[in-house]
């Protein structure tokens, strides 16, 4: 059976091409940064990762509210996918930041407000995913995931605004187009959009996988369905 082309691949391919172009610009074309030298090129990876981690988790928050209302398996699947991608981005963000801090700040880690809240973000959303595995059935799993996501989301605005609320820390306040060289804008924006598109693609693919599993679930729970010795689904009536 030939499977139809999954439309989200278009988003993925565009994202991949944009990331390739953005990273090529960032690594080989733009001039080395004043004071930072070559190390400044980490900027083009770290800043888009941060934006998109917060953006994707905001998407999770919206999906969580929607899923609580409509109780649709597709929303549950998309919610789980987006939380997983958000955790991936946040984990990368924290590690990237730690590596970048070594040559610039002179340290791997310090208990600065921004760094603490970002670490809390990672732990909180990893907690959302582990809460999911505790649920007894799919309906409960949807509820728990959605509620946990909404609770964990409290930290997202805190992470974003903490550099304004507690300006004393080692992390930089928000940068603006005026504080970043115009030479750097294009590569930065390409990488940011690319990572958003790739995040959406990964969320869609993960959601598809979950829905595929749901289909198998429905099969095994269908009337007359039974499991054979290997644990595979057998449907009565087809056997004779």
């Amino acid at each position: 059976m030939k499977r139809a082309f999954d439309k989200e691949h278009i988003i993925g391919v565009i994202g991949l091409l944009m990331l390739a172009y953005g990273c090529w610009k960032a690594l080989f074309v733009v001039p080395a940064m004043n004071h930072f030298g070559e190390v400044g090129r980490i900027f083009f990876m770290h800043v888009p990762t941060a934006w998109n981690a917060l953006l994707i988790l905001t998407g999770s928050f919206i999906l969580a509210i929607g899923a609580l209302f409509n109780r649709k398996p597709s929303w549950d699947a998309a919610l789980t996918g987006s939380v997983e991608v958000g955790v991936l981005y946040t984990a990368l963000l924290v590690v990237q930041g730690s590596i970048w801090a070594r040559p610039t700040f002179g340290i791997w880690w310090t208990w600065d407000p921004r760094l603490i809240t970002a670490a809390i973000l990672l732990i909180a959303f990893a907690g959302v995913l582990s809460a999911r595995s505790f649920a007894n059935n799919q309906g409960q799993r949807l509820r728990w995931t959605a509620v946990a996501t909404i609770v964990a989301y409290i930290d997202v605005p805190i992470v974003y605004f903490i550099v304004k609320w507690l300006p004393r820390g080692i992390h930089q306040p928000h940068s603006f187009p005026s504080t970043v060289s115009t030479d750097y804008h294009l590569a930065l924006r390409f990488n940011a959009i690319a990572m958003l598109l790739l995040g959406i693609w990964m969320t869609f693919r993960r959601a598809r996988w979950i829905l595929q599993q749901n289909a198998a679930t429905a099969m095994s729970a269908a009337p007359g369905a039974a499991l054979d010795a290997e644990g595979r689904t057998m449907v009565a009536g087809v056997e004779e």
Partner: peptide, 14 residues
């Protein structure tokens, strides 16, 4: 994918 009723029923589980 699974229908919504089956999705939400407690027995329906992978």
């Amino acid at each position: 994918v699974a229908s919504q009723e089956q999705f939400l029923s407690p027995e329906a589980d992978h």
